[in-house]
């Protein structure tokens, strides 16, 4: 890896000071499982002058139940989330999403904040610089999205415009179904934003001088059912081809407040409002579930090689709802 300076952060304020002092030529590292790859492959022309270690901030890796919500510190590791008893009990979709990431070793290193902030896995974007040079593209600020007319089996079927790379985060999908909020802290302000607002088509809304410090999840209704399903080529190591997280409450056999979030089908986590509408106020029978699955993908515009994701998306919604 190319050289950088390294600082252990003492506090969030300390991070903000350092980021300001370096004019943003800073990379924030939590688990490092994504950033290390970005740096080693020199994916981006801009290489950080400074890497700041967030793991040294005391108390940022805790899971707490406070005031009808769960607060998870940004550097809480995925293994700890997957194994946390309160999370397994109250937020099984999140536990399942955390347990599905990468491999046991990666989960011992990777954090919830890092999982949300990780960069895309688009293989044009990730092309290593030392193999003939990185590939410029729309996402990198120069050139077209090569996936549109190229190799696009893992790219977006929904919501792609200038860039068809998909959001790789599994936790974002589960947190979306759970209606979680993300605490974003910057030099002048801090804000709590709904998790789905945290993402945009080129990644996240984070400015160079901002960071995620906490995720807050409201306690769900006691009768709500949560499911997280992840389809991928292999049952380990792989990122999702399609994932779906569902939270749905049923009263006397009738659905209400369904939240259906799709992963790896769009540049951002994708809320399938049409699918939700197809089951809200109805029972979860085969007909309504099939209608929801169809509704979820009715706007899909697949590229040359990824129409199969439509089938998988429908199958996953179907399975998730019928097991709810």
């Amino acid at each position: 890896m190319k050289l950088f300076k390294h600082f252990d952060a003492e506090s969030i304020d300390h991070v903000l000071e350092m980021v300001t002092a370096t004019n943003g030529k800073t990379a924030l590292m939590a688990g490092g499982t994504d950033l290390m790859g970005v740096l080693k492959s020199e994916l981006l022309a801009a290489y950080p002058e400074v890497v700041i270690n967030l793991k040294t901030i005391a108390g940022l890796d805790t899971i707490k139940m406070v005031d009808q919500e769960c607060r998870i510190g940004a550097t809480t590791r995925l293994t700890d989330i997957a194994a946390s008893e309160p999370i397994q009990t109250t937020f099984p979709a999140l536990a399942a999403a955390a347990a599905s990431v990468g491999s046991p070793e990666l989960r011992n290193m990777g954090t919830i904040g890092g999982n949300l902030c990780q960069d895309t896995r688009c293989w044009y974007y990730r092309y290593p610089d030392k193999m003939g040079g990185r590939i410029p593209c729309y996402r990198k600020g120069k050139g077209p999205c090569h996936a549109i007319r190229g190799e696009n089996r893992y790219h977006a079927i929904l919501g792609g415009k200038k860039c068809y790379a998909v959001c790789p985060s599994d936790l974002a999908i589960a947190l979306g179904a759970l209606d979680a909020r993300v605490k974003v802290v910057g030099p002048t302000a801090e804000q709590m934003m709904p998790i789905l607002d945290f993402f945009n088509v080129l990644g996240t809304v984070l400015k160079p001088d901002e960071l995620v410090t906490e995720i807050r999840i409201p306690l769900p209704s006691k009768t709500a059912v949560q499911i997280f399903l992840k389809n991928r080529v292999r049952d380990a190591v792989d990122f999702a081809v399609v994932s779906v997280a569902v939270m749905v409450d049923q009263e006397e056999g009738v659905c209400r407040d369904a939240r259906i979030i799709l992963g790896a089908v769009a540049p951002t986590p994708y809320r399938a409002f049409a699918a939700e509408a197809a089951i809200n106020g109805k029972s979860l029978n085969e007909t309504h579930v099939a209608a929801a699955a169809e509704a979820a993908v009715k706007d899909a515009k697949p590229l040359s090689q990824n129409a199969y994701k439509i089938d998988i998306t429908k199958a996953l919604i179907h399975r998730a709802l019928l097991s709810s």
């Binding site: 293989w123 990730r126 590939i135 190799e151 990122f239």
Partner: peptide, 14 residues
């Protein structure tokens, strides 16, 4: 990639 000749899955995830 059929246009540029870049090998796209040269990593042990893809």
């Amino acid at each position: 990639d059929k246009k540029s000749g870049h090998m796209l899955n040269m990593n042990m995830c893809d």
